[in-house]
Structures are given as structure tokens and as C-alpha cells.
Simulated assay, not measured.
Amino acid sequence: MKLVHSLIIFGFAIVLVACSDSSQQSDPDFRPKHRVAHFSPESSPLVLIDEAHNNFLTLSGRYKPFAQVLESDGFRVSSNDKAITENQLRQVDVLVIANALDRKRQDWLPPYGAALDDNEVEVVKSWISSGGSLFLVADHTPFPKAIDNLAHALGFQFINGHVGNVTFSKVNQSLAGHATTYSKETTNNIDEKSQPLFLESINNASSEILQVRSFGGSAFKAPEKAISLLNLGNRTTATEPKIPFQINSDTPRVPMSGWNQGAILELGKGRVAVFSEGMMFSSQLIKNTGQTIGLRSVGAEQNEEFLLNIMRWLADS
């Protein structure tokens, strides 16, 4: 049993070193897959990436590949370093809040405060209800704690912990059958607001997204009206260390049955996509090892198309 615990801890260490290492940066060699842009300049949705809340993932930093993928499909991508206001969101189609923090941190030590104040949370929720769309990412601890007030306002309950790498597949139904997990050509005749679709109803299997991969992160329980896309199961556990990355055999472990790493929700006239892992939508270089993690990793070959499907759904395309 001690050997098993040691192997589990070693596995987490591989993931967590990448997340906590200051040499982690955007992959300079990343290039989006060749494609014809879905959006024309005239119809291009505006995506605003939040950088006002000490975000670990930013447009010019670790989420540059994320922005490159969106731009390759015709999205306009910009960043914001000011507090979120109603006026600021008037022209925005999709707001991205990825790994916000309570302050500019030099360590991961508690206590953890809220990244967004209560007024900003209310502004974001009201904007969504009126037709805006939010792409929210809160990775491993302490990121879930920093956006706890926003997550609860939207009906999501995060665990402030760590989950190891997970491969989601339609073979075992951990990846849901839904309009967002098929190519745009297939979904033209699908009601994107419908509940998850049975695979038998899809004729063009070649355009199906069969597998996506995450690289650690945390987990959450989605509200009843949400559609869970990335479903964790009994074989997956999350650790809840008192201090991030300090995991040993005594660290509490929580079975992940009924928990998710990705879900979507319609809220009023707007839409929300929530994910508890951010690297799956970017490509990052661990400078001191030369290892790349994310969109160019083995097993993540369809992550890029999955990201675009999510963003098109949020843009109501």
C-alpha cells in the first residue's frame, strides 16, 4: 500500500511541477491547425480575455496559443486589465476569465481571497442573463477558491484541490455526445440547445470528436440545468491538500463520481462554459525540461477542435 501511495504522489508531482514551475511559458513553436476561418471579418465575435485579476493565463503569456487558435477561426481577441464593468462588456461577445487570483502571488500559501469583488460578480451574472457569454477556467488549488463567489453565483461548486491527468472518451461516455463534440459541418442540423445526443443519431462519424485530454486541474459539480461534457468517474480521485502541491499519503482524497471538468449552461439569454483545467486549451513549454504540454500532446489531438466548438457555441454561431 505504501508503494501505491508513493506512485500516486509521484504521478501528481509530475503534473504539479509543471503547474508551479516559474519556467512554464507559452509554447513558442505552437501553430494552429490549418483551416478555413469559420467567421468572416464582418461577423467576427469579440473575445475579451480578463487580465485584471492577477490571472495566471493571459493573452500575451500562457494563453497565447489559446488566442492563436481562436484567431485562426476568425475570432477577434483582446485583453482587459481594468475592473469588470457593465459599460466595458457592452461590445463583448465572450468574456474569458482564466485562473484568476486574489493578488499577485509569489507563493501558493493560504489564506485565499476573492479575485472578483461582489459588484463584478453581479455585473458578470447580469450581463450573461442579458445575452453575454462567459468562458470560465479555474484550475488546481488555489484557483477555485479565488473565483468561488462567481462560481456559486452561477450554480457551480468547485473542489479546491488537485485531479491528475484524465483522458475523456466517448467510448466510456466520459466525453458527452453533444453538439459541441461534433464538427460544425455535422452540427448544422442539430439543435445546439438540446440535451446530450445519442451517437446513433449522428450519421457522419468521421467528424465526431472522440477524445480530449486534460492535464491535472480541479473538478466541480454542475447545476442541474447544465450539460456535463467532461465527466469524471469512480476511478478518479481528487486530493485536497491544505497547502497546494504538498501532497502525501495523509492528504484527503475525494472520489470524483458525479464531478466534472467541463460543462455548459444556458443562463437567461446568455451562455456559460466552465472548465476546471486550463492547459488543455493551450500549449505550454516547461523551459527547464523542454517538454510541451497541452494542445500538442499525445491524446489531445482533438482538443483544438473541441475548444473551437465551445467558443462557437458561446458566440451562438
Rank of each mutant, 00 (worst) to 15 (best):
P110Q: 05
W108A: 09
V69L: 03
D81T: 13
R105L: 05
E120F: 03
K125S: 13
D107G: 10
I49F: 00
I97Q: 12
H53K: 01
I84T: 04
P65F: 02
K82M: 08
D107L: 08
V92S: 02
V92P: 00
A83L: 10
R76D: 08
S43C: 09
T85P: 15
I49M: 14
V77I: 13
E42R: 12
D73L: 15
I49G: 02
S72P: 00
A98Y: 13
Q68R: 08
E71I: 15
E122G: 09
W127Y: 10
G74A: 04
V77F: 11
V96Y: 15
P45K: 06
E51F: 08
V77T: 12
A100C: 15
P111L: 10
V121F: 00
L89S: 06
L70N: 07
N54L: 04
Y112N: 08
P110D: 01
E51V: 13
S78D: 06
L109Q: 11
N54Q: 07
S44E: 09
L46S: 09
V96S: 15
A100W: 09
S78N: 13
N54A: 14
L48I: 06
L116T: 01
P111Q: 03
K82Y: 08
N55R: 09
D107Q: 11
D93F: 06
W127C: 15
I49P: 08
D50H: 13
N99K: 11
V47P: 13
A83C: 06
L116N: 02
P41H: 00
S126H: 11
I49R: 00
L70G: 04
A52G: 14
A114H: 10
D93A: 11
L57E: 08
N87K: 08
F75W: 05
A100D: 05
L116Q: 00
P45Y: 03
P65E: 02
W127N: 14
L109E: 11
P65D: 01
R76M: 15
K104S: 06
E122T: 13
E42W: 07
A114K: 12
W108S: 03
F66L: 11
F56D: 04
E51P: 14
V77N: 11
P110N: 06
V123L: 03
L89F: 04
S60G: 15
E42Y: 07
W127I: 15
